[in-house]
Amino acid sequence: MDTAPSPDDARALLDWYAAMGVDAALEDVGQDRFAESAARLRPSPAAEPLPAQPAARAPASAAALAAAPDETAAAARQAAASAATLDDLRAILERFEGCALKATASRTVFADGAPGARLMLVGEAPGREEDLSGLPFVGRSGQLLDRMLAAIGLERSEVYIANVIPWRPPGNRTPTPQETETCLPFIRRQIELAQPDVLVALGGSAAQSLFRAKDGILKLRGKWLDYDAGGRSIRAMATLHPAYLLRSPGQKKFAWRDLKAIRRVLDGA
């Protein structure tokens, strides 16, 4: 005999759905797809033909699915280049329909902290907490990032934080190469407009995207690079992502070395 699930069982099921990235219900009423299939197979009685109905209007984000990768990347470059200020860039991103991720995200996660700060940090993409809040690095990894900054005498309000991808991928999956290439012009323009003295890529994905690097993060981290920000060369480095450090706390010693090196450059040493 079937019984209703207990409150604890229901709560555990909801927690599992959230962990799998399911955070929205698509329909309030269930659909019997088997009955629908059977109905389509039954012959229908003769009837006068119905007047033609206008085709359903496709959502604006469908353009992102239909356009060729080269077209969307070119549109992104043109849109990003037209931004004269960070506020312009944010508004352009809110209007941009060339990336399918925007259709599944709750909101655009643009940045947090102080525009014009000397230190800019860039991660890969927002997670669930960031998608809900509209701010980057606010979950567990963000809390660790705050402690990492505090260890070298910095508050979140004193740095500028963004992501390569401004929209959360469904289920926190890895962004596709096309999604990354579409979003790259925007983060590059964001770096140019923010004009930091030091740029830090958090994690291998962000470093490979920004620096066009091939190596993994354990080989990339801790090495100073020159990053071209619109004709202005700035010091840049990759370090370990806070989420990786939560999974591998034994690697924190390497992140600490990177943080001390960043502090020395900020101090002019």
Rank of each mutant, 00 (worst) to 15 (best):
I187V: 15
P177M: 06
E179N: 08
T176N: 00
V122T: 03
F110S: 03
I191R: 04
L121G: 01
I191F: 03
I161T: 14
Q143P: 01
R140A: 15
R128P: 05
E129S: 13
R156I: 04
V164E: 04
N163F: 05
I152T: 10
G116Y: 02
A100I: 08
T182P: 07
V159P: 01
G153A: 11
L154M: 10
F110K: 03
A151W: 15
P169S: 06
L132F: 09
F96A: 12
A103T: 03
P126A: 09
V122M: 02
R147N: 06
S141A: 15
A150W: 07
Q178L: 11
F110Y: 08
E179V: 05
P166D: 12
P166F: 06
Q190A: 06
E124M: 12
S157F: 02
P126Q: 08
P175C: 06
E124P: 02
A100L: 10
F96K: 11
M148F: 12
V109A: 02
S157Q: 11
E124Q: 13
A162R: 10
G113I: 01
T180H: 01
L132S: 13
L101Y: 04
R118I: 00
P166G: 11
A111P: 01
T176L: 03
F96Y: 15
G142M: 11
P136N: 14
G142A: 10
R118P: 00
F186I: 13
R118K: 08
M148R: 10
C99Y: 03
D146T: 13
K102I: 13
S106V: 09
A105G: 05
L132I: 15
R188E: 13
A117I: 00
L184W: 09
R168N: 13
R128T: 13
V122K: 03
T180R: 14
T104M: 07
R140F: 04
A111Q: 05
C99F: 01
Q190G: 14
V164Y: 00
D146L: 11
E130N: 09
D112Y: 00
T180V: 14
Q190R: 15
L145D: 10
G113K: 01
L144G: 09
A151F: 14
I187R: 07
T108Y: 00
M120W: 02
A150M: 07
R147E: 14
C99Q: 05
G127C: 09
L145Y: 09
M120P: 01
L132C: 08
E97D: 14
G139I: 09
R188C: 06
E97A: 11
E129Y: 05
F137Y: 15
R189P: 06
E129H: 11
A151Y: 12
Q190L: 13
G116A: 03
D131K: 12
E130A: 12
F137K: 08
P136W: 09
P166N: 12
G127R: 08
Q143S: 09
R147A: 12
M148H: 05
L132V: 15
N163A: 07
E97S: 11
A111C: 05
T180A: 13
A114N: 00
N172L: 01
A162I: 08
A105Q: 04
Q178I: 07
R189Q: 15
A100H: 07
W167H: 14
G171M: 04
K102L: 09
S141V: 04
R173L: 06
G171A: 09
A105W: 06
I161P: 01
T104N: 01
C99A: 11
F110R: 04
A114G: 00
